[in-house]
Computed example of a mutant assay.
Amino acid sequence: MNIIVSGGGTGGHIYPALALIHEIQKHHPDASFLYIGARNGLEQKLVIRDNIPFTSLAITGFKRKLSLENVKTVINFIRAQAKAKRLIHKFNPDVVIGTGGYVCGPVLYAAAKSGVPTVIHEQNSVPGLTNKFLSKYVDKIAVSMKEAAAYFPQEKTVVTGNPRASEILNGDRKKAYDATGLVPGKKTVLIFGGSRGARPINDAVLALLGKIKDKAYQILYVTGDVHYDKVIEEAKRIGLAPNVIIKPFLHNMADVLAVTDLVVSRAGATTIAELTALGLPSILIPSPYVTNNHQEKNARALEKSGAALVITEQELSGERLLSEIGRILTDEERLTAMKTAARKVGIPDAAERLYQVVQTVMNS
């Protein structure tokens, strides 16, 4: 079995792709994969680290306003599509799967026009431009959140959840404590802003550090590699509290989430999938700098279910964040209700569901 997978730009597109590959490998250990990503994209590093064959295309995304850059993008798309067609012809895939990001455009379009079975997966509540474009050509569309189904042809669309959710379920608590220095048995708040970090979240956390040392809970604060040096320098100036641990990045997220009671984070699709699969309450601070403001829409959907509290960047401050953390952690009834609501939204067997969609397309 030969399978081409494409997805890139952010971890929100890449991690679901890798999770699906791992699920397919469970069922078909001898399957061969080729991952097609964007040149110089984050996906290259993550895919190669996973020992999956990787090749790249030179491609850029469309601007939403008319510009000369879009003319260049069209030219790049045509060239990338031609290269993708050659790769498809050479690799002879049984199916081509896209998980979002502009690199999927030429790959899935070339596959569909070549008569190869195709599947796309949309992680967010509001689809991106690439998946909207591809929905006209592909055989099946899988979505993580039911809100996204309304944007696609009903007869093609299936709600599967996000396959990343399936990989987060078996965290090792001991490994988490050993790797981080967290104290077992103490309520834990995990604060992070995504793989690159988020400056507004960092600023809010720094503003509350001086008031945290006497709290009964502990904080694991992940700054992102880019921000770590400045944050740790400022934290030392303020005074490092014994119940605050600061890290630049986490490679063992499944382990850490297993010991977490409350998460403060952005509202990316992968984060939402992880939180709901585990039934974790959250305070979500959606990024306003994303297409169609989809993070706030993701977050509001979770808030509506009772699983999360949303604070916009405009509303965010150290004082507000500290107050909301305290309100949730000291109210056991609310904490339990949020956990229950998160679990109801989650689809922990999402990887298996998406695998079944892929199987259906290949066998049709």
Rank of each mutant, 00 (worst) to 15 (best):
T360Y: 14
I75Q: 03
A351T: 04
E43T: 07
P93Y: 08
T360D: 15
T270F: 03
V96A: 08
V116T: 04
H251M: 13
L42W: 06
D30R: 14
A273D: 05
A241H: 07
K211V: 04
K65N: 15
K211E: 14
L240N: 11
R237L: 04
H13G: 02
A301E: 14
D261K: 08
V71R: 05
A277N: 02
C104Q: 07
K65S: 15
I328R: 03
L182S: 02
I168N: 02
A337D: 09
L220D: 00
Q81Y: 06
L278N: 11
I283E: 06
L34E: 04
K83Y: 07
N252F: 09
L169H: 08
V222I: 05
R86G: 13
R164G: 10
G326L: 11
R343M: 11
K156C: 02
N124E: 03
L87F: 04
H251L: 14
F91D: 01
E167M: 15
R334F: 09
Y137A: 12
S125R: 09
G197E: 04
K175W: 06
H28K: 14
D203C: 03
P16H: 08
S144P: 02
I325E: 08
V358Y: 00
A350N: 06
T340V: 13
E332N: 15
N40W: 13
P288F: 05
A350Y: 11
Q44I: 11
A148S: 04
G224C: 10
P106A: 00
V47D: 03
L68I: 13
N162S: 13
G193A: 06
N131T: 08
D349S: 12
I285S: 00
F33W: 03
T10H: 02
K90M: 12
P348A: 01
